[in-house]
Measured scan of single mutants.
Amino acid sequence: HNLTITQGKLFFHYNPKLCLSEIHKMEEVSGTKGRQERNDIALKTNGDQASCENELLKFSYIRTSFDKILLRWEPYWPPDFRDLLGFMLFYKEAPYQNVTEFDGQDACGSNSWTVVDIDPPLRSNDPKSQNHPGWLMRGLKPWTQYAIFVKTLVTFSDERRTYGAKSDIIYVQTDATNPSVPLDPISVSNSSSQIILKWKPPSDPNGNITHYLVFWERQAEDSELFELDYCLKGLKLPSRTWSPPFESEDSQKHNQSEYEDSAGECCSCPKTDSQILKELEESSFRKTFEDYLHNVVFVPRKTSSGTGAEDPRPSRKRRSLGDVGNVTVAVPTVAAFPNTSSTSVPTSPEEHRPFEKVVNKESLVISGLRHFTGYRIELQACNQDTPEERCSVAAYVSARTMPEAKADDIVGPVTHEIFENNVVHLMWQEPKEPNGLIVLYEVSYRRYGDEELHLCVSRKHFALERGCRLRGLSPGNYSVRIRATSLAGNGSWTEPTYFYVTDYLDVPSNIA
């Protein structure tokens, strides 16, 4: 807008934040220059609390790290170098490059900038070799853009010569660093050979998330399962459950009422301010606690030095998902009996873990797994792929695949051998790939016309006998059925096997 004052003059007093240069501009645009008398524009009460600059400061050096910015700028000295009290560095987070010096300023003089007072450097006698002032900004957020400017702080001049310097606002972004852990990993099994893994992005990506790394490792069953005799009275049979499938998407929606109208769909109840505040506090606490764990609990591995020492970490090797089922080394339970199943799973520490690289999504279907087997899954978020990966501390989750139908069934015939004193040795093959492992066998036998009897055969007993022995049988026709019990439950009964026990007292003698 054009402003013209045809008559009258300007009068400025007691404006401590208004620089004289701005008042002189007002004289020019209003056409009143030359009308004012000496005392109409006070030299001592206008701009006496402001830094009124008329020179431009330029930054000469900028260096960044993930949490620091090192700045240096060209030296500046007023005509009387004693008038320079120091520099004021202003900075704040700036997602967009549209910041002005006066953003967030209120009537009390406060604003949204963080201000650092910096002492002037030592003055050199040689004007050509003056030290460049600077400042190291610490405690910054990774991968965050900051708006920065600097200006001088000078003393009051009796001659009211307006001098000083100020830089333009520059924008500097800190470097990326390792992201925080992925949030809320959930693993479920939808079949006997697959596990579905879902997660949420890290709360602090500290860069642009480029991919996720998912490692999985087959877990050995508890050692007590191999040692305890679950045929003993009072000892509860062990059981394991597989990871249940995901709930429906509708039930997972946030901010939804727990109660549904019987007449149909209901609208979600909005969260109160107290609920939102509580969630923010919980989120802040979780982030602080995660940072504490990362800094205190997890110790970084030592990389190899120039002395030739090897990095103890196993090298990563990509495998196809079809090879995942046989990740671990199978060892027989008892070496003397080769027909026992290889369900003991000690994992070799030198073995390469299978892994998958996930790009542009937060889910993965891990296939080719062994049925009813526990897996430990390790999830890392990465925001750099080359020249070397920059990934987060791992988040861990466990899951067990679903049982395989008929995996616990005894394959092959049940054979028998009759000894003296009416002892019958029953023999059968253990299931080759049971659900988890076989903890015991149930032997059901009966003599024709009598009630059915049951015998429990422990895992250890089966390994020693290759089956079991029935003792003290009365003469007669017998039928026997056997079924295995694994961590997933009972298998199917075998087809009945028949044998006849004679009275050993009636056996004919070869003595003449």
Rank of each mutant, 00 (worst) to 15 (best):
S203G: 09
N206G: 05
N206R: 03
G207W: 00
I209R: 15
I209Y: 00
L213S: 13
V214G: 13
F215P: 02
F215E: 09
F215D: 12
W216A: 10
W216F: 15
W216K: 15
W216S: 05
R218A: 09
Q219M: 06
E221K: 15
D222I: 06
S223I: 09
S223Q: 10
E224W: 15
L225H: 07
L225E: 05
L225T: 07
F226L: 07
F226R: 14
E227C: 10
D229F: 04
Y230E: 03
Y230F: 12
L232V: 15
L232Y: 08
K233I: 01
K233R: 15
K233P: 15
G234R: 06
G234H: 10
L235K: 04
L235V: 11
K236E: 04
K236F: 02
P238R: 02
S239H: 15
S243T: 08
S243E: 03
P245E: 09
P245W: 12
F246T: 10
E247T: 08
E247C: 13
S248P: 09
E249W: 07
D250S: 11
D250P: 11
D250M: 11
D250V: 06
S251Y: 06
Q252E: 10
H254L: 11
N255Y: 05
Q256A: 15
Q256N: 08
E258A: 09
Y259Q: 12
D261V: 11
D261T: 12
D261N: 12
S262K: 05
G264Q: 04
G264Y: 14
G264N: 15
E265S: 13
E265L: 11
C266V: 08
S268Y: 04
S268L: 10
C269F: 09
C269A: 06
P270C: 03
K271S: 06
T272H: 06
T272V: 05
T272W: 06
D273Y: 14
S274W: 14
I276N: 02
I276V: 05
L277W: 05
L277S: 07
E279F: 03
L280N: 13
E281Q: 13
E281A: 11
E282Q: 05
S283A: 14
F285A: 08
R286S: 02
R286W: 02
K287R: 02
T288L: 06
F289W: 06
E290R: 04
E290Y: 02
E290D: 04
L293A: 03
N295C: 03
V296C: 15
V296A: 13
V297N: 01
V297P: 02
F298H: 01
F298P: 02
P300Q: 10
R301E: 01
T303R: 11
S304G: 13
S304C: 06
G306A: 08
T307E: 12
G308D: 08
G308L: 09
G308A: 13
A309T: 03
R313V: 14
S315W: 08
K317D: 06
K317L: 13
R319E: 14
S320E: 12
L321M: 11
V324L: 09
G325D: 15
N326G: 00
V327N: 10
V327Y: 13
V329Q: 03
T333L: 12
V334M: 08
V334G: 15
V334K: 13
A336Q: 03
A336G: 07
F337L: 12
F337S: 08
F337V: 10
P338F: 12
P338M: 12
N339A: 11
N339D: 10
N339F: 08
N339I: 12
T340L: 10
T340Q: 09
S341I: 12
S341A: 04
T343L: 11
T343F: 08
T343Q: 09
S344D: 10
V345Q: 11
V345P: 15
V345N: 11
P346T: 13
P346I: 09
T347Y: 10
P349T: 13
H352N: 13
P354M: 14
P354R: 11
P354V: 10
F355C: 06
F355P: 11
F355N: 11
F355K: 11
E356Y: 11
K357P: 12
V359Y: 11
N360G: 09
S363I: 12
S363T: 06
L364R: 12
L364G: 09
I366H: 00
I366Y: 04
S367P: 09
S367K: 09
S367F: 06
S367I: 09
G368R: 12
G368L: 05
R370I: 13
R370L: 14
H371C: 08
T373C: 03
Y375M: 15
R376Q: 03
R376S: 03
I377C: 09
E378A: 07
E378P: 00
L379D: 00
A381P: 08
C382L: 02
N383Q: 07
N383Y: 03
N383H: 08
P387D: 00
P387Y: 12
P387S: 07
E388Q: 12
E388N: 05
E389P: 11
R390K: 01
V393I: 15
V393T: 04
V393L: 02
A394E: 15
A395V: 07
S398V: 06
S398I: 07
S398G: 02
S398R: 15
R400P: 01
T401L: 05
M402G: 07
M402S: 13
P403V: 06
A405L: 06
K406V: 11
K406Y: 07
A407V: 11
G412S: 13
V414H: 04
V414G: 02
E417P: 04
I418R: 13
F419C: 11
E420V: 12
N421L: 12
N421P: 13
N421Q: 05
V423I: 10
V424T: 05
V424Q: 02
V424R: 09
H425L: 11
H425P: 04
M427S: 13
M427K: 10
Q429M: 15
Q429R: 07
E430L: 11
K432S: 13
E433M: 07
E433C: 14
E433Y: 08
P434I: 07
P434K: 06
P434N: 04
N435C: 12
G436E: 03
L437R: 15
L440E: 04
L440H: 07
E442Q: 05
E442L: 14
V443D: 03
S444A: 06
S444T: 11
S444D: 15
S444R: 14
Y445L: 14
Y445T: 05
R446S: 07
E452F: 13
E452A: 13
L453G: 05
H454M: 09
L455P: 03
C456A: 03
C456G: 07
V457Y: 08
V457F: 00
S458R: 06
K460G: 10
K460Y: 06
K460S: 13
H461C: 11
E465R: 12
G467R: 13
G467M: 06
G467W: 07
C468L: 07
R469K: 07
R469P: 03
R471Q: 12
P475T: 11
G476P: 01
N477K: 13
Y478A: 00
Y478L: 01
Y478S: 01
S479R: 13
V480F: 09
R481T: 07
R481M: 09
R483P: 00
A484T: 14
A484I: 11
T485W: 15
S486I: 00
L487C: 09
L487G: 08
L487W: 12
A488N: 09
A488P: 01
A488M: 15
G489M: 07
G489A: 05
G489V: 09
N490K: 05
S492K: 00
S492I: 10
W493A: 00
W493R: 04
T494D: 00
T494Q: 01
E495R: 14
Y498F: 10
Y498T: 11
F499W: 06
Y500A: 10
V501P: 03
T502D: 02
D503A: 09
D503N: 07
D503L: 06
D506M: 10
D506E: 04
D506K: 04
S509N: 14
S509V: 10
N510S: 09
